[in-house]
Nucleic acid binder design. Structure first.
Length: 569
RNA sequence: CGGGGUGUGGCGCAGUUAGGUUAGCGCGCGUGCUUUGGGAGCACGAGGUCGGCGGUUCGAAUCCGCCCACCCCGACCA
C-alpha cells in the first residue's frame, strides 16, 4: 500500500519547457523522472516501478528463449576494446576515465568485447555451445546530441544479449528465437512494432533487423510496403528506380541564365517545372578529393548508402571554405555535362532520364533539355538516394510508404566480427579449433518505457497498459480529513493486496479536482473514488484507458476492481 | 562539431530595448481558520550569489568581454 503523500510523485501542472515530444513531457509531468543533466535522468519511484515492469517482461521472454542472465560491470578495462579496435573507432562517444594507477577504462556503452573475452577465456568445447548470455544494465554513451528524454539519453538502460555458436545454422536458429521474443516483448508492452531490415553499417556482420514503433517522435525513417510486408530503414532500403525522373520528350539542349539560383526549389520555380525535372548535385570531400553525387531533385543523398558505396565513412559534405581547392567546380551550378577532374556517382534513377535540367558548370547558368547517354553518361550508377513516398517496393509491385520510427530493439548476426580479432575459438568434436560464430541483440528498456507513454496517452495524461503500469490501482480519497473515507480506502487496499493487486492511495489533503486531475495525469489503469457516496455504501470505479465509469458497492469493491483489471487493456 | 535559441525563488514567466529606490507576478511551499465530487477562500509567512567570472560606471538583472549549462535543427545509436 503506497501513499501518494509518502511516495515522491511531484506532478507538474504546467508543461515544462524544453520537451518536444509528448512522451517526454508526460514522463516529467506525471512525476516519473527528473532531469539531472543533458541526457541523464533520475527515475522517481513510480517511474522505476514501471521500468521494472518492462524489464521483467524482457527478462521473462529472454529466459523463455533459453538465454541466461548475468551481470557485467559498467567499468570496462580498455584492453579488450583495444584488441577489437573499437577503443579508437568508438571515438568521443565512449565515456572514458583513468584510475589512480593511470589505467584506462570506459563506462560500458555495450559489451561485446567484455563478454567475448570472457567466453574465449573459458576455452569452450563444442559441448558448451550454443550459449546465449544477457544482462539488463545501465549503459553509457556520450551522444553527440541527447534529446527527447529517454528516447536518446547518455545514460540509459538496455538489455544486451550475446550468443555464441558452432556455426551459422545454429546462429540462425537463435536469431530467429530472439526475433520472435522481441515481437512478444513488444506485444506484452502494448507496442505495435514493424520489423525492418537495418544497416550493419561498418560495424560488421551480415544481417540485422530493427524493431520499430511507428511514431512521429521517432528519429529513424523507415520505408514500408503494406502489400508484402517489406520494411527497411531508409538508410539502406532498396527502392526500385521508378523513372519518374525527367520528362518524356526529346528536347534540344539549351543554356539558360539563372542568376543566383542554386537550390532545386529556386531552379524549378524559375523554370516553372517540378523538382522531378531537376538534377541535384551534392558535393562531398572524400580523402581530399572532390566527389559530385547526382540524384533526382526530389530526393536526398542517403549518407549511409553513400558510405556503403564508398566503403568508408570518412567523408563529409563540402564546406564553403573548401570550394577554392576545387577550381573546376562551380558550386550551385555543377552538372554532369562536360564536368572534368571530379569523381562522380549517379543515383540509379538518373540512368535513362531525358529532358532534365542541370547545372552548366558555369556561374549563373543551367542547362535544360539534357538527356542521359546523349549528353552525358550516368556512370557509375548506384543506389545512393533515399526513397520517397510512392517508390516501388523492391520485393513486390506495391508502393512504399515512409514513416518515422522509434527503434526499440536491434538484432545482429555478427558472424566472426569479434571472435576472430579476440581469438575466441572452441574445440570441435574432432579436436580442431574453430572460430565461434556470434550474434548480438540489444533492446532499450528505458526507451521502451517512454515509448509506451508516447503511444498510450490522451490530452489528460498517461493511459498505462496494465502490463507495464507502475501500479494497477489508485484509490482516490476525496476528503482525507474524513476518517470513514480513509478507513474504507485502507480496508479495500488490504483486500486488494491479499489478491496481490498493488494499490496507490491518494491521501493528500488537497481539493478533489487536483486529485482527479493527477489521477488522470499519472494514468494508473483503475481509479476508485472514495467520497461521500460511501454513506450509501457506494464507490465509483473508472477505467483510465476507456474512461468507462461504474458504481460499485463497497462490499463488492474488491471483486469489481479485480474484474475491471481483467477487462483493462 | 556546425547553425539557432534560452538562462531571473521549486515550476511558468515579466523586468533588459533606454543602467537608477527594497527585483516583481501567477502557480507551488509553510502556518492558522473556513472549505472538500473535476485544479477552493481569507490572512500571515518563508524562499533569489538575476548561470559564472571579469570589466565599464557614483550605480549593473540591464552595457561590454570571456566562460559554462540547457534546449532546438543537422551528421550517430537501444
Amino acid at each position: 500500500m503506497l501513499k501518494f503523500s509518502r511516495v515522491t510523485v511531484p506532478t507538474l501542472r504546467e508543461k515544462p519547457v524544453d520537451c518536444e515530444v509528448v512522451g517526454h513531457e508526460l514522463m516529467l509531468r506525471a512525476g516519473l523522472m527528473r532531469p539531472v543533466s543533458s541526457g541523464i535522468y533520475m527515475m522517481l519511484p513510480l517511474g522505476l516501478s514501471a521500468l521494472l515492469k518492462v524489464e521483467n517482461i524482457v527478462r521473462e521472454e529472454m529466459n523463455k528463449t533459453g538465454a541466461i542472465e548475468l551481470e557485467l560491470p559498467s567499468l570496462h578495462p580498455s584492453e579488450s576494446w583495444q584488441a577489437s579496435g573499437r577503443w579508437f573507432e568508438y571515438g568521443p562517444e565512449m565515456m572514458r576515465l583513468t584510475d589512480r594507477h593511470g589505467r584506462d577504462f570506459c563506462l560500458g556503452p555495450t559489451a561485446e568485447e567484455l563478454i567475448t573475452h570472457y567466453v574465449g577465456k573459458a576455452a569452450p568445447s563444442y559441448r558448451d555451445l550454443p550459449v546465449n548470455l544477457y544482462q539488463i544494465k545501465t549503459k553509457f554513451r556520450d551522444e553527440p546530441r541527447p534529446r527527447f528524454g529517454l528516447l536518446r539519453a547518455r545514460e540509459f538502460r538496455m538489455k544486451d544479449a550475446y550468443s555464441f555458436h558452432r556455426g551459422t545454422e545454429e546462429l540462425d536458429e537463435t536469431y530467429e528465437r530472439m526475433y520472435q521474443a522481441y515481437l512478444e516483448i513488444a506485444r506484452r508492452c502494448s507496442l505495435e512494432v514493424k520489423v525492418v531490415e537495418a544497416s550493419t553499417g561498418l560495424i560488421g556482420g551480415d544481417v540485422s533487423h530493427e524493431f520499430m514503433v511507428l511514431s512521429d517522435a521517432g528519429e529513424d525513417t523507415v520505408s514500408l510496403c503494406e502489400k508484402c510486408g517489406y520494411g527497411a530503414n531508409a538508410e539502406l532500403e532498396r527502392h526500385r528506380p521508378t523513372l519518374r525522373f525527367g520528362g518524356e520528350e526529346e528536347e534540344e539542349i539549351e543554356e539558360v541564365h539563372t542568376p543566383g539560383l542554386t537550390s532545386i526549389d529556386d531552379v524549378s520555380e524559375f523554370m516553372g517545372v517540378p523538382a522531378r525535372m531537376v538534377l541535384k548535385c551534392v558535393l562531398y570531400v572524400v580523402g581530399g578529393d572532390a566527389l559530385a553525387v547526382f540524384i533526382p531533385g526530389y530526393r536526398e543523398v542517403s549518407t549511409k548508402k553513400l558510405a556503403a558505396v564508398l566503403k568508408t565513412d570518412s567523408f563529409h559534405p563540402m564546406r564553403e571554405d573548401e570550394f577554392p581547392f576545387f577550381p573546376s567546380l562551380t558550386p550551385g551550378f555543377v552538372g554532369p555535362v562536360g564536368l572534368r577532374d571530379t569523381k562522380v556517382i549517379f543515383d540509379e534513377e538518373v540512368v535513362g532520364a531525358r529532358n532534365i535540367i542541370c547545372g552548366a558548370n558555369k556561374e549563373d547558368y543551367h542547362l535544360k533539355g539534357v538527356e542521359e547517354k546523349r549528353d552525358f553518361r550516368a556512370e557509375p550508377a548506384m543506389n545512393v538516394a533515399s526513397s520517397v513516398e510512392g517508390d516501388e517496393c523492391p520485393s513486390c509491385d506495391g508502393a512504399l510508404t515512409i514513416s518515422r520510427g522509434i527503434e526499440i530493439g536491434h538484432i545482429f548476426k555478427l558472424g566472426l566480427k569479434y571472435s576472430k580479432p579476440l581469438g575466441v575459438e572452441f574445440t570441435d568434436r574432432d579436436g580442431s579449433l574453430m572460430p565461434v560464430v556470434m550474434g548480438t541483440y540489444g533492446m532499450g528498456t528505458t526507451r521502451i518505457l517512454q515509448t509506451v507513454v508516447e503511444q498510450h496517452h490522451d490530452d489528460r495524461g498517461i493511459r498505462w497498459p496494465k502490463a507495464v503500469a507502475p501500479i494497477p490501482v489508485e484509490l482516490i480519497v476525496l476528503n482525507s480529513e474524513n476518517n470513514e473515507q480513509i478507513e474504507t480506502a485502507e480496508n479495500l487496499s488490504r483486500e486488494l493486496e491479499k489478491k496481490e493487486i498493488e494499490v496507490l492511495i491518494d491521501d493528500r489533503s488537497l481539493s478533489p479536482g487536483i486529485k482527479f486531475n493527477d489521477a488522470d495525469l499519472v494514468g494508473l489503469p483503475i481509479q476508485v473514488v472514495i467520497g461521500n457516496k460511501i454513506s450509501r455504501g457506494m464507490l465509483d470505479l473508472k477505467l483510465r484507458y476507456t474512461s468507462i465509469k461504474r458504481d460499485v458497492e463497497i462490499r463488492n469493491a474488491g471483486g469489481a476492481v479485480e474484474n475491471a483489471l481483467k477487462e483493462a487493456r
